[in-house]
Write a protein that binds this DNA or RNA. Structure first.
Lengths: 230, 230, 230, 230
DNA sequence: GATGAATGAGCTTTCATTCAT
DNA sequence: CATGAATGAAAGCTCATTCAT
C-alpha cells in the first residue's frame, strides 16, 4: 500500500468519524480498523492524535484560504478600488465554503471543528487556526468594515460573531436539525437550501438598527428585570 | 456529610468541568477528586456518568421550564387571547434564560452545555431534552408562529434555530470572545450588553424577507457556482 | 418489617440466586434488591457474605442432620445390633434427602449448593461443613463400612464419592438435563423417577468388582497407553 | 517477548488459577501479574475474559475431539462393522481424556469447565461446547447405544449422565478429595489410580439391572415415604 | 433495630503510544 | 517503510463493608 493511500484513507475515515462522534469519542482504534490500516499507522504518519486532528483540519483550511484569497483578489479587481457591497462579500464567502469539500459530510466536519475551536476554552485548536489561517479572516473582516461604514467597530465585531454562530451551529448540527425538520415538515433539506435560507437572514442581521444606548439600566427593566450582573 | 452536600458538590463541579472540556473529556475521577468526594459517589448517587450529565441539565432545565411556563401564562393573560408581539416573546424568553442561573458564569455553562447537547450527533442528550422538556419549547414555538403568521412553517423553524445558534454560540464562547473584544476594542462587555446587542439583530433576522424561491439552480450560479450537491 | 421476615427473605432470595449463578457471581446488591431489603441488612444480620452463605447451608443441613440421625437411630433399633443392609442405608439416606426441602425446586438448589461447596477448592465451605456436619456423615460411612465388609476402606471412600458425584451432578443439573431428555425422549421426568433410576445403578456401583491391582503400569497399556503421570 | 510466549503464559497461568479458584474468583490482574505479562495483554490477545475462558477450554477440547475422532476411527476399523464392546469404548474415552493434558492440573480444569458448563443454568459455556464440540459426543453416544442394545434409550441417556456426573464431580473436585483421602487413608492418589478405580464402577453401573417399573407410587413408599412431588 | 450514605479496593476494559523487527 | 506486539495509564463501574444517625 502506497503511503499516500494510507494517509488519505486515514484522513477520510477520521474526518467522517470525527464529524459523527466528536474527537474524544473517536478512538484511533476505530479509525484505523475502519480505514483498514495498521493501528500504529496514525502515530507513524501523523505523530499523535492531536496532529491528526489538525491534519484533518488543514486539508480543509488550506485550499479554503487559498481559494478565498483568490476570490477576494478577483472581487477587489472587479470593483477596482471601490467598496465591495456586503452581499457580494457574503456570497463570495459562502461560495468558497461550499466549493472546498470534496466528499459528503466534510462541510459538517469543518463546521464542527470551527465550533470546537471556538468553544473549547483551553483551545489548542483556536491558537492553531489563529496562527495559521488568521490572515484571510483579518482581510475579510476589513472588507466587511468598508462595506458597513455606518456600524461601530465593536458592533460589527459582535454581529459577525453572531452570524458565525448561526452558521456554525446550523451546519455543524446539521444532521440533528435535518432529522427534526424532516420529521416535522417532511422536507428534505440540502446544504444549498440552508445557504439560500441563510442569505437574507444574515444580511438583515448585519443591517439591523443599532441597539438603544444603554443609558440607564432601569429603563430596560422588563428585559433585564431578573438578570444578575455576570 | 449530608447527602445534599455531596450531590450538590458533584453537580457543581461536574457542571463547570463539562462546560470547560466537554463530556467525554471529563472523567469521573477528575470530577470527584476536584469535588473532594469519593470516586464511587457518582455511581452511588446518579447511577452512571450519563445519568450525571442529565442531572446537570435537569438542574438548569427544570426551573427554566417552570419559570418559562409561568412567564408565558402571564404574557397570555396580559394579552387576553390576542396575538403576542414577537419582541415581547423574545424578551420574555431572554429574561427567563437570564433569571435562572444563580451563580457566576453559569449562564455560560448552561449555554455551553446546550451547545454540546446539540452538536453531539448520536444524541442521547438531545432525545432526553426533547422528551422531558419539549413541551415548553413547543408552546413557545406555537406562540412565535402566531406572532409571525406570514412566515412559512419551515422557514420559521430554521430561523429559530439560526437564532438559537447565534445565542448559544455567542454566550457559550463568551469568555474567548470577550478576550478578543477587550483586546481589540478596549470594551468591557457584560452579558447584559450582549443581550442588548442581540435584540435588534434577532428581530431583524426573524423579519428578514423570504429567500428567493429556488426555481432553478442555474439562476443562482454566482452564489452556488462551485458547490456540489450535499 | 419483623426481623425474622427480613432474615427469611434474604435467605430465600440468596438460596435461589446462589444456586442459579454461584456465590461469587451473586452480589449482595442483587440479593438485597431482589429481596427488597436494605443493602446493609445482610451485613447487619449475618455479619458478612461468607456468613450468609453458611447460613443458607445451615438452613438445609441442620434439619437434615437431625432427621438423618433420627432415621439412623430407628434403623439401628430395628436391626438390633445386626448389620444393616446397604440398600436400606441408601434408601434411608435418599428418603431423608428428599424429606428436607419444603418448597419446589429447593432439592435442586440444595444439590447445586453442595456441588459448589465441593468444587470450590479453596473451600472455607468444605471445612465448615466438615466441622459442623461431619459427625452424621462419619456415622453413615461407618454403617456403610459394616454393610460392605469386603471393600477396602479406600475403595469404599472413593465409591461413595463417585456416587455422591452422580447424585449431585444429576440433581443439580436437573433442569438442563430434563430439557434435553424431554426434547429427545419425550419423557417427563420427576425427581422420583430419577431416584428410582438411580437405585439399581448406585447399588451395582457399590458392589462392583474390585479393580485390578496396579502392579505394573505396562500391564494396563490399552487403558493407559497414552496417559502421562499426573 | 514472542507472541506465543505471552499467549501461552497467559493460558498456562489462567488454567491453573481457574482450576484453583473458579472463574469469577480469578481476576485478570491476578492472572497477568502471576504470568508476568501486562494487564492489558489479555484483552489484546483474547479480547475479553470470557474469550480467555473459552480459549483455555479450546486448548483442551480441540486436541481432545481430534484425538477422540481418530481413536474411534481406529476402533471402528478394528471391529470392522461389528459392535464395539462397551468397555472398549469406555477405555478409549478414558485413554483420550488422559492423553490430552500436557501440564499438571489441566485435567482438573477441563473437568471443572465441563461441570460448570452443565451446572450453569443460563449457560453460555454449554451452548459454546454444544456448538463447537457436540459432534464427537453424539458419535460416542451412538456407539454406546449399539454396545448396549438391551437398554431403553432413556435409561441409557440417564446412566451416561450419571457416570458423567461421577467422573466430572470426582475429577473436578480432585484436589479437595485428594486432601481428605490423604488425611484419612494416607494414600497418594493419582489420576491414574482414580481411573483404574472408576472402570469397574462405571461398567457395573451401565450394566445394572433395569429399575422396577413404577406401576404404582404406593408400592415404593419406603423409598419415597417423605418426599414431596417435585 | 435498621438504614441511607459513603468508602476504599478492586474489577474489566479501552486508550494513545512505543518498540522491536 | 510498515507493522504486530506490547505497555502504562486511565477509564467507568461494582464490590463488600462501614458508619452516623
Amino acid at each position: 500500500m502506497a503511503q499516500s493511500d494510507t494517509v488519505t484513507r486515514i484522513l477520510d475515515t477520521a474526518e467522517v468519524l470525527f464529524a459523527e462522534r466528536g474527537f474524544a469519542e473517536t478512538s484511533l482504534r476505530t479509525i484505523t480498523s475502519k480505514a483498514k490500516v495498521n493501528l500504529a499507522a496514525v502515530n507513524y504518519h501523523f505523530g499523535s492524535k492531536k496532529a491528526l486532528i489538525q491534519a484533518v483540519f488543514a486539508r480543509y483550511l488550506d485550499p479554503f484560504t487559498q481559494r478565498f484569497h483568490t476570490a477576494l483578489d478577483e472581487l477587489e479587481a472587479h470593483h477596482a478600488g471601490k467598496v465591495i457591497p456586503l452581499d457580494e462579500l457574503l456570497e463570495t464567502m459562502a461560495a468558497t465554503v461550499l466549493a472546498v469539500p470534496a466528499e459528503r459530510n466534510s462541510l459538517q466536519v469543518f463546521m464542527r471543528l470551527l465550533g470546537l475551536a471556538y468553544s473549547q476554552a483551553q483551545g489548542h485548536l483556536r491558537r492553531y487556526i489563529q496562527r495559521d489561517y488568521g490572515d484571510v479572516f483579518t482581510r475579510f473582516t476589513e472588507l466587511v468594515r468598508q462595506a458597513t461604514p455606518e456600524l461601530p467597530d465593536a458592533e460589527r465585531f459582535w454581529r459577525l460573531h453572531f452570524m458565525l454562530g448561526t452558521v456554525i451551529f446550523t451546519l455543524s448540527g446539521l444532521e440533528a436539525l435535518r432529522d427534526i425538520a424532516e420529521q416535522d415538515y417532511h422536507e428534505q433539506v440540502s446544504v444549498k437550501d440552508l445557504v439560500r435560507r441563510l442569505r437574507p437572514v444574515v444580511v438583515a442581521a448585519m443591517n439591523a438598527p443599532l441597539p438603544d444606548q444603554m443609558q440607564n439600566e432601569g429603563l430596560h427593566k422588563d428585559f433585564h428585570a431578573h438578570s444578575e450582573t455576570q
